[in-house]
Simulated scan of single mutants.
Amino acid sequence: MNNIIHFMARLSLLYYLLWSTSIHAYAHNRDTAPNSTYPTPDRLFHIARSLNRNLVCYDANQANGKLDTKEPVKVYWLNREKEPGKTNGLSFIQKKMAYGYKVVSVAEHTCTITLTAYPERELTICREGDHFVCRVKIDNRQAILQSLYVKASPNNPLNVEYVELQGITTDTGVPVTEKVSK
């Protein structure tokens, strides 16, 4: 429980920093399906937020079919509002406070990472066929992570109400979600 509160506090601080510099805060379109998010062939998953429709995208960083051992994941913003399709890198604060990652282990076709805001849950990036996927336990089931949705309080962007993980189970191929809240 303490880990979840720590995760929520980190996201809350980042939301404050983003909200204070944002001109528009639109209601989030819960449509986080890959077809609606300008996917790249290397897209592992993305984070959608209730503050606006922009996404934080996580792509496998590879060369010649192998993960880059120094930087196995590319993380960037995908604009879906003012300049749809435009991408921007993360700021130093965004990487350190919430959207960055830490490499736990790396091999030729496999990498284990943790997200800065939630280091308690490991994500495994591995080759599946001709592309890379991100495997994680969702609702105690092994799944391929597709997205995370972060719901902030509409009256206080510092207050994260919950985070929802969305994926596809690896054994049956059915959608699975898990809502993590305080």
Rank of each mutant, 00 (worst) to 15 (best):
D68I: 01
V75D: 02
Y26T: 11
Q62H: 15
I168D: 00
P72V: 00
C111E: 05
C126T: 14
K74G: 00
G167M: 04
K96M: 14
N88V: 02
E120Y: 14
T40N: 10
A98V: 04
L148P: 00
T124L: 03
Q94F: 08
H131P: 00
L51R: 05
N29Y: 13
V75G: 07
T177C: 07
R49L: 11
A143Y: 07
I5E: 13
Y149R: 02
Q94G: 13
S36E: 09
C134N: 03
H6K: 10
Q62G: 06
Y101W: 05
L13G: 15
S12R: 12
V163I: 14
I4N: 10
L165V: 00
L123C: 07
R135S: 06
T169H: 04
T69I: 10
V103H: 06
L17C: 08
E122H: 12
I125Y: 07
R10Q: 15
Y76H: 14
P175L: 01
T21Q: 15
N54S: 07
N2V: 08
K82G: 03
L14F: 14
S147G: 00
L123Q: 10
L44D: 01
V73E: 04
H6L: 06
V106I: 12
A60Y: 10
W77R: 04
Y76N: 08
T87D: 08
A25Y: 09
I125N: 05
G129M: 05
